[in-house]
Nucleic acid binder design. Structure first.
Length: 472
RNA sequence: GGCUGGGUGGCAGAGUGGUUAUGCAGCGGACUGCAACUCCGUUAACGCCGGUUCGAUUCCGACCUCAGCCUCCA
């Protein structure tokens, strides 16, 4: 069977392009992670989840995929937060790094192969800056080292803006130590009370963009296949990063496919720490299951913006319930979950789901395909066909990082933040009592028990095999 | 102002030059003691104005409008 081609919308060309890795034996991906100075919000979870799905897809098809995603642990906001807490930046950044990794792990994100941090790569950063100076793309000035933007003829090619446009914007910082207002800092001096490292230009700290250039080079090489991140990083972060790497590396390619995820909105506005309209993953997990959050994130195509709302979560919950409801009906014979499907050969994954994902990671279409698989499974009466359909559904679930729970548990464990519900034993006892009442024809008594359970958040489902329950 | 991407049924969200997206919700029916679950059926959409076309939600142009980036940001 011929596999569908993988197609990506490449920010660099502005078009969809067929994905052809530089080396099919070893695919490389780098994704920009967050700057950690507080708990991350659900918007930070989107790239983590999206590129997790991408690596799951790629790993079904290529023998080796190296996935690197950094955490920025040196930055002026970190400095400010640490200073106001009276702690050092490492303590603070380590604490929030761990929290970030826990939060995205809760969203079903598998850890990247490498999670590099800027402060562990100071030597590599200094090396790269020296190279840029040697090649006349950067210069030292008053303790700073600056990248000279006009020295890169391709500058602006990623974010599609001309140097004139940037002057029109007139928001670039003008400073005496800059040759050109658009020049940006590679290294900046630290005062005594600021964190810093010794360098050929005095004690200082790296600028924001250089860490990614240095860490990509170290962990993946001069040219990588895929670079991902939020669309808000396209300019200036990725433009600057690309300029540095192009100019420092002999191989001029750097990134072959740039992928940018859209922003999460809250109301009509982008969710953003500086605006203050954020919902932390941690906070959301108090009220919603992590799988519902993941479903909600996947309900929109990654490059579009997605409006986060209670209604979105309610719909995600209901949709996920329906997939699990189907699984619950076949679960008793063999309670598999999607995590049992990791090792399948690529042709064993459901074609409709795979094809949707191959089309620029069209997760809404993939979810639609999942619901169609689930409907097929429910309609089938043949047990063998039902089990086969169940396996297809779970295999699709693996690609999306969903359906990893046992269906029975999914319905009986309830959602976080549920009010205290009766224990399973108490529920079973009431179900037995109701059964006896029904056998006696005491329907009023039976209904009273059912209503009582419903009031406690327990819904009953009768079938020929007996009565089962779920938390709602 | 420049650049980028949008405006699809009650909501979310795919897609297509002429044929059912899908999910949630709604409606009718089956099942059920009644429900729930499930099944069957069903309502309903393509911002506005022109153009191309036998035919446009889908292509082209103008307009209106929304969001993002141009400063830290996933």
């Amino acid at each position: 069977m011929t596999q569908a081609e993988i197609v990506f919308h490449n920010t660099l060309s502005g078009k969809k392009e067929t994905f052809v890795p530089a080396n099919p034996e070893h695919v490389s991906i780098y994704v920009c992670g967050p700057t950690v100075y507080s708990f991350v919000h659900i918007g930070n979870g989107r790239p983590a989840v999206v590129f997790d799905v991408l690596t799951r897809l790629l790993r079904t098809r290529y023998p080796k995929v190296s996935y690197v995603s950094n955490i920025t642990d040196i930055d002026d906001k970190i400095n400010a937060a640490a200073a106001s807490n009276g702690e050092d930046i490492k303590t603070l950044a380590d604490r929030y790094s761990r929290a970030y990794q826990e939060d995205v792990a809760a969203l079903g994100v598998r850890p990247p192969d490498v999670v590099p941090k800027a402060t562990h790569h100071i030597a590599e950063i200094i090396d790269m800056i020296e190279t840029l100076i040697e090649k006349d793309h950067a210069y030292a000035s008053e303790g700073h080292v600056l990248f000279h933007v006009p020295s890169d003829p391709e500058y602006g090619s990623l974010s599609k803006r001309s140097l004139e446009d940037m002057i029109d914007g007139a928001r670039v910082e003008v400073a005496g130590y800059k040759k050109d207002p658009k020049d940006f800092v590679l290294w900046k001096p630290s005062t005594e009370d600021q964190p810093g490292w010794d360098s050929p230009w005095g004690r200082g700290r790296p600028g924001w963009h250089i860490e990614c250039s240095a860490m990509v080079k170290k962990h993946l090489g001069d040219t990588i296949d895929i670079h991902g991140g939020g669309s808000d990083l396209t300019f200036p972060h990725h433009e600057n990063e690309a300029a540095q790497s192009r100019c420092a590396n002999d191989d001029s390619g750097y990134v072959r496919y740039w992928l940018h995820n859209g922003m999460l909105n809250l109301g009509t506005e982008k969710m953003s720490k500086s605006v203050g309209n954020v919902l932390t993953i941690r906070g959301l997990l108090e009220k919603h299951s992590s799988e519902v959050l993941r479903y909600a994130l996947l309900s929109g195509q990654y490059s579009s913006s997605l409006t986060w709302s209670d209604d979105l979560l309610a719909q995600a919950r209901a949709s996920l319930d329906s997939l699990y409801q189907g699984l619950r009906d076949v679960a008793d014979t063999n309670p598999l979950t999607s995590t049992d499907m990791e090792k399948l050969a690529q042709e064993e994954f459901p074609e409709t789901v795979v094809n949707a994902l191959c089309d620029d990671l069209n997760t809404p279409k993939a979810l639609a395909a999942m619901h169609e698989l689930a409907a097929d499974m429910r309609r089938t009466t043949d047990e063998a066909a039902k089990a086969a359909a169940r396996n297809q559904l779970l295999a699709g679930g693996w690609l999306l990082g969903l359906l990893y729970q046992n269906a029975e548990d999914y319905f009986t464990q309830g959602q976080p933040g549920d009010s205290a519900a009766p224990t399973a034993d108490a529920i079973e006892a009431l179900i037995a009592e109701r059964k006896a009442a029904r056998a006696d024809g005491d329907y009023a008594g039976a209904d009273r028990i059912r209503d009582e359970l419903l009031a406690a958040g327990i819904e009953l489902e009768d079938s020929r095999e007996g009565t089962r329950w779920r938390k709602i």
